[in-house]
């Protein structure tokens, strides 16, 4: 058995010292958890920003959409710039409408189906963008405590081996090893707690935005359906 370094009694017990005194495995666990925490917070910040933007975009679009502006005009204005959320659903639907209707589609039913498909696809893409990386938060939230616990178990194991070698059960000898081992669990919890909270909050936000967009898609589908009926039927009559 290799001789294990055991913190001498009265050794520095600051957090930084504990980290440096820890064994390789514990150190790796701590570094990994720290990286996970960094990435978690990056995602959280990113998502919060993007959801706020999305909500603002949805509000702006709804305002414009229900302002009584003609759909044609709105499509023209939106087609040129990059759209997000409802805008992209609207653009996708209008593109399909234009392609099919202007070329003189015969079946109104097929046209309706195609438009719905296009809107579904746009919605799915938007949702994908919104939901992306939320899974990482869930993973960190559930796995980080276990990873930290693993580091603690290894650290305590190591320190107990060292105690056995030292043949002293003085608490001053035992304590630093256990403290450094517990640091791993502390970091794990530090990463997991914000991840879990943020995951719950962000997924709720995503589902809200999703239902809002779905609602718009259904509404727009109904409007287009009415338009198809009017225009195709008149064209047929003519």
């Amino acid at each position: 058995m290799e001789t294990l370094h055991l913190a001498e009694p009265g050794a520095s017990v600051s957090v930084w010292a504990l980290f440096w005194q820890a064994g390789l495995i514990v150190k790796l666990v701590m570094i990994g958890l720290l990286a996970a925490s960094v990435w978690t917070w990056a995602i959280i910040i990113d998502k919060v920003i993007s959801y706020n933007r999305m909500r603002a975009a949805l509000n702006r679009f709804e305002q414009v959409f229900w302002s009584g502006q003609s759909l044609e005009q709105l499509y023209q204005s939106l087609n040129e710039k990059k759209t997000a959320g409802m805008g992209s659903i609207f653009v996708a639907a209008m593109r399909e409408w234009k392609k099919s209707f202007e070329k003189g589609a015969k079946s109104p039913l097929a046209l309706q189906t195609r438009i719905d498909k296009a809107m579904d696809l746009a919605l799915t893409r938007e949702m994908e963008g919104l939901e992306g990386r939320l899974g990482f938060l869930a993973t960190v939230g559930s796995a980080a405590p276990f990873i930290g616990l693993f580091g603690t178990v290894v650290g305590i194991m190591t320190s107990f081996q060292a105690i056995a070698g030292a043949q002293s059960t003085n608490l001053a000898v035992v304590a630093p090893g256990i403290a450094e081992a517990l640091l791993a669990t502390a970091i794990g919890l530090l990463a997991a707690i914000p991840a879990v909270i943020a995951y719950n909050k962000l997924s709720a936000d995503v589902s809200k935005i999703g239902t809002r967009m779905e609602g718009f898609a259904d509404e727009f589908s109904a409007i287009l359906s009415r338009q198809i009926d009017e225009k195709v039927v008149t064209r047929m009559a003519a």
Binding site: S12, V13, S14, V15, W16, A17, L34, S37, V38, W39, T40, W41, A42, I43, I44, I45, D46, K47, I49
Partner: peptide, 27 residues
């Protein structure tokens, strides 16, 4: 994403720095 990541890194660095300075060895 870059904004989020950089913000997160800065945030962690700041917390760790403050922690290392203020959270010395407990009394």
């Amino acid at each position: 994403m870059k904004a989020g990541l950089s913000t997160s890194v800065i945030f962690h660095a700041a917390v760790l720095g403050v922690g290392l300075i203020s959270l010395g060895a407990p009394k």
